[in-house]
Design a protein around this nucleic acid. Structure first.
Lengths: 223, 223
DNA sequence: GCGATCGCTTAAGGGCATCTTAAGGAGGGG
DNA sequence: CCCCTCCTTAAGATGCCCTTAAGCGATCGC
């Protein structure tokens, strides 16, 4: 199972660069530009967080501090501040590593790898949506505590929606990314999988139809 | 339980300083000036190794490389070399962190702390999964107390799954990491090993098939 | 309200991933 | 040089589940 990494970086250029390198290195990467997007419900599923503290100063550290009240996810801090005091402050707030800008992408990758090499923390926390629990690493799902057997496509489909909670995902995107992209007539196939998925998640009306667009997963709840 | 830290540093001034700060921070510290002193028998008992690569160049990296053949102890590397290539090389050889000289002792302390915050790793204790007991160090396995003879590949395969308990591990990853990575048609080979492994672990249905993905070891002691 | 479009459900068929068994061959120890 | 262990390869059997098709139901534009 590939590790999922969340990158919080408001600089477009740097963000693009980081994400590109991480993907090249084989990591599944999600890039957000605002620290506010680190919500309790959004973090589960990620193995590591790359957090740029930005320049405004305290802002980034506040995010980190708050984050540590509800999550133990490993955090690699990026910052332009090179002073010892700044680093110490970040570490004391729970940072796992601290990299000063500018840096070489190769070093970032290796530091991420070094952090993930340790098996104990490798697994992201399971995602939760109402009565649904989704463990991306184990590829296991359960509804209200009861395990639910999902096929490969069913799981991938659910995971794809789960990673873009509240967002309407187009049929085309799902067909291209979850199903075999080579196939043509995958439109109807998708219906079938969604149908079966809904039946298996009986009782939980999580997958909403967005008419003429695709589907949307009802928002996750912060455990 | 205070953590014990081994420091390899040949510079007297710097060594004194490091040890002083570590002790001040509450760590039990042992200081050696020669890397040769990192013997397989000496390492157990230490939670972390601070390793100065010194200037002579390759010497320190060789120590690290050799070390990794028999120990998984976390290693924080100190070095005067600041280039990206040097850092990447160290990480690839298994370093967990890399600090360039000169540095502030506070940062070293915090990096050591950040590293030790994470759950203590396997300290030689055997892993347990249901009736299976797996000693990675001794390469011994037993089922319900009875020793089971595993071949090299079988043990590595089981160990690979065990170190990622509960996680769905892809066939490709297993083929690349457990079997000879150069080979091409290793897909079928994997089946055979899994099959034999299951037979030897008779009674314990530990290795689950994740259809279309790979395999998963049923969780015994998760995270 | 009506037709057209889009989505849902059920059922059936077959492709293909996986399992098992058997035999070939490489490497190490005696 | 022979034997033994064990990794690999091959081939056939098994059955999972992806896809396709077809009819019904829902929704939208007018």
């Amino acid at each position: 199972m590939t590790d999922r990494i969340l990158v919080i970086e408001d600089d477009q250029r740097l963000g693009t660069q980081i994400v590109e390198h991480l993907r090249e290195a084989g990591f599944e990467t999600l890039w957000r530009t605002a620290g506010e997007l680190i919500l309790p419900g959004a973090l589960p599923g990620f193995s590591l967080l790359v957090l740029d503290l930005m320049l405004p100063g305290k802002h980034g550290l506040d995010i980190l501090k708050h984050l540590r009240t509800y999550s133990q996810v490993p955090v690699l801090v990026l910052s332009a501040r090179t002073s010892s005091a700044d680093k110490v402050r970040a570490f004391k707030l729970g940072a796992d590593d601290y990299l000063t800008k500018p840096f070489w992408p190769e070093e970032l990758i290796e530091r991420v790898r070094a952090r993930l090499r340790r098996p104990a923390m490798q697994r992201g926390e399971p995602l939760r949506f109402g009565g649904l629990e989704l463990d991306l690493g184990a590829r296991l799902a359960s509804v209200r505590g009861k395990p639910v057997e999902l096929t490969r496509v069913e799981f991938d489909l659910l995971a794809a929606l789960a990673q873009r909670t509240g967002e309407a995902v187009t049929r085309k995107w799902l067909a291209d990314n979850v199903l075999d992209p080579d196939k043509e007539g995958t439109e109807r196939t998708l219906d079938v999988h969604v149908s079966r998925l809904r039946k298996k998640l009986e009782g939980e009306e999580l997958i909403e139809t967005v008419w003429g667009i695709g589907y949307r997963l009802r928002g996750g709840s912060p455990r």
